[in-house]
């Protein structure tokens, strides 16, 4: 009983005393690493939808996503208008498959920044960025409160020119290191996109955003709501899914 009491006291001391002192000392890079731990999975299967709102009204697109690590992602659209269309990312290459096309289309250059299905996401946004720790220097700028959640505010500056956004501002939840808000900037310093995370769900010890809104500020009155209705992390995903041969089947 005495041992339990000592252990409890020690835990209370660590959690209430020393850990906050450590967290105060967290660097921008460490916060980014912890945030990425939430977002990078060995494998993932999910289903979701986009609700795109712009000057022409509201449209819904539904899809399934499969991924293996950070290098391989496959999106299969399931809504009637785009049923069967697929986007495959393997490393730096992005391929499109259309049921009525006899060849697989490779997206490259500036086309990577084109909107996907008229949404506020580009192909680069959709298929995931490279490892942020490798691509950016993270500077902790302070703390802020987003929707009642206490957050770290990070400024990310690109280390190399081949990243999607040369500068980013991120607000990371202090409690679970989930991303709560992100601003994306062009090289000119102009803010071009805003991401607001609504709901975060704890899955296998990871804080996973399942409801968020992206706004492309270069488009007038446009926003895309991203809703993940079903998600499984670290489950078996067949590697064959990510081959070009499999894409057209």
């Amino acid at each position: 009983m005495k041992k339990i009491l000592i252990l409890a006291t020690l835990l209370a001391f660590l959690s209430g005393g020393i850990l906050p002192l450590f967290s105060e000392a967290l660097s921008g890079r460490e916060i980014l690493r912890r945030m990425q731990r939430n977002e990078i999975y060995g494998s993932m299967r999910s289903e979701g939808s986009w609700i795109i709102r712009d000057r022409f009204g509201t449209r819904e697109k539904t899809f399934k996503v499969y991924s293996l690590g950070t290098e391989k992602t496959l999106i299969v659209f399931t809504n009637p208008e785009e049923e069967g269309q697929k986007i495959l990312r393997v490393g730096n290459e992005i391929y499109l498959y259309f049921p009525d096309a006899e060849e697989v289309i490779r997206i490259e250059g500036s086309a990577m920044r084109d909107s996907v299905l008229g949404s506020d996401f580009s192909y680069e946004d959709m298929t995931g960025q490279k490892d942020l720790l490798d691509s950016y220097d993270a500077i902790l700028e302070g703390e802020d409160t987003i929707e009642g959640k206490s957050c770290y505010k990070l400024r990310l500056k690109a280390k190399r020119p081949d990243v999607v956004y040369p500068m980013e501002e991120l607000w990371v939840d202090k409690k679970n290191y989930a991303l709560r808000r992100a601003y994306y900037y062009a090289l000119s310093g102009r803010k071009i996109k805003e991401l607001d995370i609504g709901e975060v769900r704890m899955i296998k010890g990871r804080a996973v955003p399942v409801h968020f809104v992206m706004r492309d500020l270069l488009k007038k009155n446009s926003q895309t709501e991203f809703i993940i209705s079903k998600i499984e992390i670290d489950v078996p995903v067949d590697e064959k899914l990510f081959s070009l041969e499999e894409l057209s089947w």
Binding site: F56, E82, Q85
Partner: peptide
Amino acid sequence: LSKSMYMGMTGMT
């Protein structure tokens, strides 16, 4: 490749 009536991408050979 073009934009369909539903603002989505479409492709045909």
